[in-house]
Amino acid sequence: MKESLMDILCDPLDKSDLELEVDERDGEEIIEGRLVGTVTGEVYPIEDGIPNLLPPDMRDEE
């Protein structure tokens, strides 16, 4: 994901802000890292450049 996506992303649970933590980036592009809910504390992974913002209970369901 491009960092500019942060402008409009929010925590799917309560629509509060997210904080970006980067493990690997390529210029503007975030490759690996996570988005952390500033209010909920939930952790949403960014893998292969794609953020997974499913509510946590849906992420694990199969």
Binding site: M1, L5, I8, L9, C10, D11, P12, L13, Y44, I50, P51, N52, L53, L54, P55, M58
Partner: peptide, 10 residues
């Protein structure tokens, strides 16, 4: 973005 219709992360 991976996400669900019922909880939009925007």
């Amino acid at each position: 973005v991976v996400g669900d219709f019922d909880a939009l992360p925007f």
